[in-house]
Structure formats: structure tokens, C-alpha cells
Amino acid sequence: MTTHTSTLVEYRRKVAANRLGLWLFILSDTFVFGGLYVSRFYLLGTQERPEVSQLLGFVVTAILLLSSFFMNRAETAMAHGDRKTFLRGTLTTLILGVIFLVGVVGVEWQIAPFGPGDGAAASIFYTMTGFHAFHVLTGVIFLAVVYNNGRKGLYSAERHWAVEACAVYWHFVDVVWIFFYPALYLIGLPVI
């Protein structure tokens, strides 16, 4: 995304700063998710959880994990200069991300037997999935940008910081879900 007139040395240095910046951002974001996570256990303990569709939860989780795999493939491909695989991987990740969003917001939210106002468990459920979905959405937008710019040929094996950033962010969002999924779907028994 930066101008190609800079030398590779300068580019690498900038990317080093960017990388630190990105990880700091992720550290910061972890505090939001951490706060939600703690709130969930503070309010519901380990005995309670919202009544949710186990099948759907399992499916969307699998989809998100799978998407991380493709994201990784795309990034590795770019690092080796394989543009085609990179583009395919990015697109697959993007589509899986959209499916995840539809699964959570479009289906789970609609079939849940409770609304956001039906007690603490419901509030926690909608807020945790909502915050996460918002991050997935921003990730999907990021992926779309990367895909689009990738098609224009803006990235090379040496210069593809945006791809790396997108991948790290996507994995982060994925890891968050790995924590959220058991907290919302597995631990405790349904109360509402």
C-alpha cells in the first residue's frame, strides 16, 4: 500500500514499526474481549449459559477455523510470490467469513428463543456475539480491500504488509472465537 519508490530496507523498517503497532492494537482489543469474557463468568458462573443451537454453533466455529487455514495459505502463497493461490485463498477466507456472519447474525440471532432484553444471559450472548461479529465484519472488509488490491497486483513477495496485517487480524478474531465458543455454547446448562 505504500509507494514503491522507497527502498526495500526502508520498507522493511516501516513494516517492523507497523507490526509492533498492529500487535499493540491487538493487545488493546484483547482487553475489550477480556472484559466481556470476565463479565460472562461473573454474571453466569460456570453453571449457566444461554439456550443456543448446538449444531449451528459447531458449524460456524468449524467454518471460522477453516477460514483461518485459507487465510494462512493465502499469506504464505503471497510470501512466495504465488499470486494466484493468494487470491484464491483470500477469496475463500472472505466467503467463509461472510458465511460465519450469516450464521451468527442472520440465523442464530433469529432462531434464539430470547431477545436481547431477556435477562443477563441473553444480554451477554448478544453482546459477545455482536462484538465478535463486528470484528469479523471489519475483517471481511479488510479482506475485500486486500483482495481487490491484490488483483491489481499491488503486492509482491517482498512487499505485502497489508496481506500480513489482514492475516494477523483475521487469526486474532478467530482466536477470540475459540475462547467465546465454549463460554457461550459449551460451559454450563441453558437457563433461557
Binding site: 454474571l43 432484553g117 443477563a120 444471559a121 441473553a122 444480554s123
Partner: peptide, 18 residues
Amino acid sequence: MFERLFGMGFFEPSKGGD
């Protein structure tokens, strides 16, 4: 804000909040 907008109940005892 969500409590006010969507009737959520994190901090509302009558809804199981604290």
C-alpha cells in the same frame, strides 16, 4: 448504553444482572 437501547440487563438485578 445497550441496557438503555435494547433493554439488556448486565447491571439490572431484576434481570439477573449485578
